[in-house]
Structure formats: C-alpha cells, structure tokens
C-alpha cells in the first residue's frame, strides 16, 4: 500500500531542491539542488503512472499479467532524464569555467553583471 507517500517524497525532494538553490552558497550545491528538482519532477511522472501491483509495460506481456503500469510516463521520464543529464553536464562545465575565471565557487561573488 503506497497511498500518498510517493507524492510526499516528491514534495520533499522539490522543496529540498528549491532550498538548496535559494540558500546554498556553493555553486556545486546549487547544481545539486537543480538535480534534486529534476528528480522530484521525474518521480512525480513515474508515480502518476503507477498502478497498484502493476507489472512492466512490455508488449509481449500483454494478456499474461492483469495490470500494467502506464507506459507513457515512463517514456516521458526517460526523455526527461536524458535532458536532465545534458543540463547537469553543461551546468557543471560552466561551474568549472566560472571557477577558472573568478577563482571562487561562492555564488555571492559571481555578480559582475548588474545594473
């Protein structure tokens, strides 16, 4: 019996991610926060497609099992994970470059562009 537990986890992950983006100073931790946000969104999609006691949605299993979890969210999640991977990679490489240029990972000091 899963009930609303997964949604609670999604919420916790979401706010953890938001918290670390808003209140952490280290750029890497901000990147982690973004990854947490992504994870919460992905988890939300998966949970939405879950049917109690369902099995994997594979075409050849049709008829053999009673319920299947919904396939669409899984496809969506896969896509979202790939996108998330690209984002994280780019984010981390930008952080690396920032460190090279600014010599710091403190987000408060990266503010040359203002006004």
């Amino acid at each position: 019996m899963t009930g609303n537990m997964p949604f609670l986890v999604v919420g916790i992950l979401f706010f953890l991610g938001l918290y670390s983006i808003l209140f952490e100073r280290n750029l890497i931790k901000i990147a982690i926060g973004i990854t947490l946000l992504e994870a919460s969104a992905n988890l939300l999609l998966i949970v939405l497609g879950y049917r109690n006691g369902g099995s994997i949605p594979v075409f050849t299993l049709a008829g053999e099992v009673e319920t299947m979890v919904l396939p669409t969210p899984q496809a969506l999640t896969l896509t979202a994970i790939v996108i998330g991977l690209a984002t994280s990679a780019l984010l981390l490489s930008l952080i690396m470059m920032l460190y090279k240029h600014y010599g710091t990972l403190d987000v408060r000091e990266i503010r040359r562009l203002r006004g």
Partner: peptide, 22 residues
C-alpha cells in the same frame, strides 16, 4: 556568468513546466 545565471533560472522554470505537465 551570464550563461550560468540564465541556465539556473531557466532550468528551475523548465522543471516547473515538467511538473505542470505531470
């Protein structure tokens, strides 16, 4: 710096869109 800031802000926004889609 511009790219990084743009990226963080816009990724957060994109995640909001994904959640809305969910």
């Amino acid at each position: 710096e511009a790219g990084f800031k743009y990226m963080v802000v816009s990724t957060v926004a994109a995640m909001l869109i994904l959640i809305a889609v969910g």
